[in-house]
């Protein structure tokens, strides 16, 4: 297909899809109505479970099985990156040199890194109480570490990034989520059932299994994102050598 034929075909089809989608959206319930069947039920269930943050209750209790699948996707992505970005025979690793940065930038990074880490820990730890949780806090934790790269250089990041350890931690945390689900089965309840004592509403220990799974997800996301970025950064910054490129024929 020539370029213009392809573009025309795509634009024609996309226009048709857009028309149908817009028409479909006119069939949706009106904005601002009071009927939220799932929302009402989910909030009621959240309160019964002594969990202050409904989103966390849905993520780690009511629909925890979805979250188990999602964090497995993250584990799969990390493993996939490990497999695809592995160093081949014609590539060599090297240590990138030191980079000159402004002292003010370095100072800013040095001050902000612990603050950002602390923020991440806070967001993970309060997942069952206030907006945030393992996914969001985990990403904050991972980006906090990368301040070392932004405010200094790749060497500094490598120094504070225990990559081998995080590789293992990532897998252990993912396994921990799966294993925590077994607690329900062992006590005679269902898989992933919230069988821990629910505690007092709106305290750190409330929500039963929610804070525990939330913490496991926080650890997994933080280490997973760090390892994932490490593979890409290594490939871009610390690997030399070209993979052979061959033209692919058509069918």
């Amino acid at each position: 297909m020539s370029r213009s034929a392809r573009v025309r075909l795509f634009l024609g089809a996309a226009a048709a899809i857009a028309v149908f989608y817009v028409l479909a959206c006119t069939g949706l319930p009106h904005f601002g109505t009071a009927a939220h069947p799932y929302g009402d039920r989910a909030v009621a269930a959240t309160l019964r479970q002594h969990t202050a943050n409904t989103v966390s209750s849905i993520n780690f209790d009511q629909r925890a099985f979805d979250t188990l699948g999602e964090e497995s996707i993250l584990l799969g992505s990390v493993l996939g990156a490990t497999a695809l970005l592995r160093r081949t025979d014609d590539e060599q690793e090297f240590t990138p040199g030191q980079v000159r940065v402004l002292p003010s930038t370095r100072l800013f990074g040095t001050l902000l890194l612990p603050v950002a880490l602390l923020t991440g820990v806070y967001i993970v730890a309060h997942g069952q109480l206030s907006p945030g949780g393992g996914f969001q806090g985990g990403v904050v934790l991972a980006s906090a570490l990368h301040l070392a790269y932004v405010a200094a250089d790749y060497r500094s990041l490598k120094e504070i990034r225990p990559r081998e350890l995080l590789d293992g931690v990532d897998a252990v945390a993912a396994g921990a989520f799966t294993t925590l689900g077994l607690a329900g089965l062992i006590t005679g309840a269902a898989y992933l059932q919230n069988v821990l004592p629910l505690g007092t509403f709106n305290t750190l220990s409330s929500g039963g299994l929610v804070p525990v799974i939330n913490a496991a997800v926080g650890v997994e996301v933080a280490s997973g994102v760090i390892v994932l970025l490490a593979h890409f950064l290594d490939q871009a910054l610390a690997t030399r050598g070209e993979r052979t490129t061959t033209e692919r024929g058509s069918s």
Binding site: L75, A171, G175, L185
Partner: peptide
């Protein structure tokens, strides 16, 4: 029934870790 998913997931975590 959920173990049909959980068992391979656990195995994946095990291989990734050790």
């Amino acid at each position: 029934l959920p173990l049909a998913v959980a068992v391979p997931l656990l195995g994946a975590a095990l291989f990734a870790a050790v």
